[in-house]
């Protein structure tokens, strides 16, 4: 079984509002899975179902091949978007309490807390109250209690919102580290730049429906448009530009370069290979730049959401 989590045709309604409409997902073991979608798309509803906070109206969720049951709760670590800690409780006590609610024994929890507090350099906070800590410090604690019970599935809902850049980086590294140790991570966000960096697989949800799912590279391939950015060093730029524009669909491009060349974005028809274009360009002048335009997750996201909204 290569999928840790399988969501099959899950639907969920709140009164007359449909939060999820026949959503299916396959989340491979040991991957970082990006669950993308605009606000209100249904991400949090899906995550709450996986956490057994709510239950689907229809459909099933399999965890490690078995239907979700209460024992799985101890194998999931969840960092919700709306998160916080008891303000007047001491750091150590609070972390112990939350760890024990996840089924750890007191001794085990203490030992692991010591490890994590050392690792994140927060050792001397044990007896401080949360309200005495800065926001960044509280966020570290929040992260620790999420991962403390070594869950095989980690769910981060907008993990970087509210984190300062230093902590965000720290947490990013820790997430990668946990993935390398074998954890599966679901990473829900509408911030695309972090998805590019972290995710192996993504799914896109909009208006309660899944629009897109698969390996990030595959999706990018699917969305490539045979477009290239080129730089061409020639004496008469206007004439050359006009000549190329007669043969291909072109747009002006901008990228950093040392010489003052023609910068174009050229869209090739489907029956043209990149080499044909390159051969053609080489005849015209000195090619200083030749790069395929890879769609960013952001582009894909915006295009897919727009297309589905237009329907």
């Amino acid at each position: 079984m290569s999928n840790l989590l399988e969501v099959n045709d899950v639907s969920k309604k709140y009164g007359s509002y449909t939060a999820l409409d026949n959503v299916s997902l396959q989340i491979p073991k040991g991957s970082i899975f990006g669950l993308l979608g605009p606000n209100g798309a249904g991400k949090t509803s899906l995550i709450r179902i996986i956490n057994q906070i709510t239950y689907p109206d229809r459909g099933t969720v399999l965890f490690d091949g078995k239907p979700l049951n209460p024992e799985h709760i101890a194998r999931i670590g969840y960092l919700p978007e709306e998160r916080g800690l008891y303000k007047s409780m001491k750091v150590g006590e609070q972390a112990l309490y939350l760890a024990r609610l996840k089924g750890l024994s007191s001794g085990e929890a203490r030992e692991r807390l010591r490890y994590w507090f050392d690792r994140l350099e927060i050792g001397d906070w044990w007896n401080k109250k949360i309200q005495e800590l800065s926001k960044g410090m509280a966020q570290k604690i929040q992260f620790v209690v999420t991962v403390l019970h070594r869950p095989s599935l980690l769910i981060f809902d907008e993990p970087f919102s509210g984190f300062d850049p230093i902590n965000a980086n720290l947490i990013k590294d820790e997430i990668l580290h946990l993935r390398d140790q074998g954890a599966t991570v679901i990473f829900s966000t509408h911030r695309m730049e972090s998805v590019e960096e972290l995710c192996d697989d993504i799914a896109l949800i909009n208006k309660s429906k899944k629009l897109l799912e698969g390996r990030l590279v595959d999706i990018k391939k699917q969305y490539r448009s045979n477009t290239f950015e080129v730089g061409l060093d020639v004496p008469d730029r206007t004439a050359i530009r006009a000549e190329i524009a007669q043969k291909f669909r072109v747009a002006d491009a901008s990228f950093k370069s040392l010489s003052d060349e023609v910068k174009l974005r050229i869209h090739l028809p489907d029956d043209h290979a990149p080499n044909d274009l390159l051969a053609y360009l080489v005849n015209l002048g000195v090619v200083t730049h030749f790069v395929e335009v890879i769609p960013s997750v952001n582009d894909i996201f915006i295009r897919t959401v727009k297309d589905s909204d237009d329907e």
Binding site: I53, P80, R83, G84, K87, L101
Partner: peptide, 13 residues
């Protein structure tokens, strides 16, 4: 304090 969702991912409401 927004701890509620953290808690109920561990215990039943």
């Amino acid at each position: 304090s927004r701890i509620i969702e953290v808690i109920i991912s561990s215990v039943k409401p």
